[in-house]
């Protein structure tokens, strides 16, 4: 049986269990899958779901890109320079452990309930986790390969992009994967606390009306998008990065 059939069957079984339990419980607090689908249809075609999803995705994408670029740069610097690492290690641990909610609230208080404050709050929350992962990668870079670059007098850009950075790709991929799931969760909190659009705002409104089916419909929509990103972006990238790492011999 091909893995795709297996996955579909598991999803089908889970959906059946959900439908059965909802039917047994028979309460509006636990809507059936069909009710959630109806709600999804309603919010998608008649409500603001598409607008909210677009707004949230834009925020997720923007903060993801900024956090990854900053995290990779700082991580490489800390991983390759012992002195810088010693200087900023404590700061990193502090930032890593400040609760996300505190950063969000402080950003809103200091910079106002504006878009840039929302993005900044998400970025501040994400950068330290990227830094930690990339720093570990930069610490274990193979010096022997860098010696090859030095002996053959490769330019700095060639050494960086062809010899150094490829060694960090697995670490960048791992932090990107972990990053995306963390970021969209934080974005939702940011929206819930201080924005008037986006999925977080919509969930807050649905919560006011105790619309459980609506909340689940939004969750369903977002999970579908994350699954699509995983399959269309991360898996092909995984294959690209893993090139040359298999062990078939001629």
């Amino acid at each position: 049986m091909s893995p795709i059939y297996g996955r579909v069957i598991i999803l089908f079984i889970l959906a059946s269990i959900w439908q059965l339990v909802a039917w047994l419980v028979n309460s509006s607090d636990f809507p059936s899958l069909l009710t959630v689908m109806e709600s999804f249809h309603y919010h998608f075609f008649q409500g603001d779901m598409l607008v909210n999803l677009t707004v949230t995705l834009k925020r997720v994408l923007l903060s993801f890109i900024i956090a990854m670029i900053l995290g990779v740069i700082i991580g490489i610097l800390m991983g390759t320079s012992k002195r810088l690492n010693q200087l900023s290690d404590t700061l990193l641990i502090i930032v890593l452990n400040v609760p996300a909610l505190v950063t969000i609230l402080l950003c809103y208080i200091w910079f106002g309930l504006v878009e840039s404050a929302a993005i900044l709050a998400v970025v501040i929350n994400k950068v330290p986790t990227v830094v930690v992962m990339i720093r570990e990668g930069a610490r274990v870079v193979d010096e022997d390969l860098l010696d090859v670059a030095k002996v053959y007098k490769l330019s700095i850009t060639k050494t960086f992009f062809k010899v150094f950075l490829p060694q960090l790709y697995p670490y960048i991929m791992a932090s990107a994967r972990a990053g995306l799931s963390l970021i969209w969760k934080i974005v939702l909190v940011v929206e819930l606390l201080g924005r008037s659009d986006g999925v977080g705002f919509a969930l807050n409104t649905l919560f006011q009306f105790f619309d459980i089916a609506g909340i689940l419909a939004y969750t369903f929509a977002f999970i579908s998008i994350v699954l699509a990103i995983e399959n269309l972006l991360f898996r092909p990238l995984d294959k690209l990065i893993a090139r040359g790492s298999h062990h078939d011999r001629t």
Binding site: D144, D147, V148, L154
Partner: peptide, 24 residues
Amino acid sequence: QLGYIFQQPRLMPWLTVQENIQLV
């Protein structure tokens, strides 16, 4: 122009044979 053949081949695993030579 220096050529150095190390104890281990020290090829870049992510580059093909051709790309490894092209690199230098």
